[in-house]
Design a protein around this nucleic acid. Structure first.
Lengths: 139, 139
DNA sequence: TAATCAATTAATAATTTTTTTCATTATATC
DNA sequence: GATATAATGAAAAAAATTATTAATTGATTA
């Protein structure tokens, strides 16, 4: 149950936190902006302030429940952290997001970091393109 | 001369545009925020409004003179586009930025895009870590 | 189960980053 | 050099995010 997930990371199980966590778990979109979440909660009559959404998401991030990304439009999007790291492939037409993990790339990143004497802490790779669907319907 | 570079892409050679272009070409930092540029111009008494800086950078971006990045703090940074694509390695302590290009990774990205039926248009890879300098002085 | 207390929230204000508007000024062309 | 047009600066507006504060909620204890 979500209440336990929150307790585990030292956060009180409050209504806003539960709702946001549930939303991230069950929403169609895996990747949501703070605004997305705020609106979704309004629709289900769970009136949670936008400031609270931001605050909770930041708490979730530091607690490791959630991962924050900056896709190239400059907006922050959040996704549930389900343990397994992955990178992203994004359609610039429809916004579809595909997650993938590739060993060749993962390894090569370590090699590169080493080469430059860096102690790697994190990385993110975004590939932008046009998905097969959007290729068909010519704009 | 920079005047020609601007004309070539269909932009009038105005003072603000020349100054910003020159700054990007000759500054120590290759990667600057709009604010950075604004401040640098103030220091040299070239009074260019912040709004103009943003406007010009956006024009430069669409003209292909400049590339815009969103590093993981969410800020936009701009760098001169000198033709050769590259990825970035960033020190999270001192902010140092290293540019690199790796064929293994480049090729693998195409392979992945293909695999998912995407027609790849662009990509960016940011590796975050601690540079050798910052590793020595323990925080 | 009620009382207590610290943590959390909503609401609002404040910040930060970026974009727009519009009157004024500069640029390129003739 | 005069003129038409495009670009600028300043200020205001928008958009995104963070901080403040008084009031409420959830957890704990009696």
């Amino acid at each position: 149950m979500e209440t336990q997930d929150l307790k585990k990371v030292g956060l009180k199980a409050t209504l806003p936190r539960l709702r946001i966590l549930q939303l991230l778990e069950h929403s169609q979109q895996r990747h949501m902006t703070a605004e997305d979440i705020y609106k979704a909660l309004l629709e289900t009559r769970d009136d949670v302030g936008l400031a609270t959404v931001y605050r909770v998401l930041t708490q979730f991030e530091t607690a490791g429940l959630v991962v924050r990304h900056h896709f190239e439009n400059g907006l922050s999007v959040f996704e549930l952290n389900e343990g397994r790291h992955h990178d992203h492939l994004l359609c610039i037409k429809c916004g579809q997001v595909v997650e993938f993990l590739d060993n060749v790339i993962e390894k090569q990143q370590c090699t590169i970091a080493q080469e430059y004497g860096f102690d790697i802490t994190d990385h993110c790779l975004y590939i932008y393109g046009i998905c097969s669907n959007c290729q068909i319907k010519k704009s």
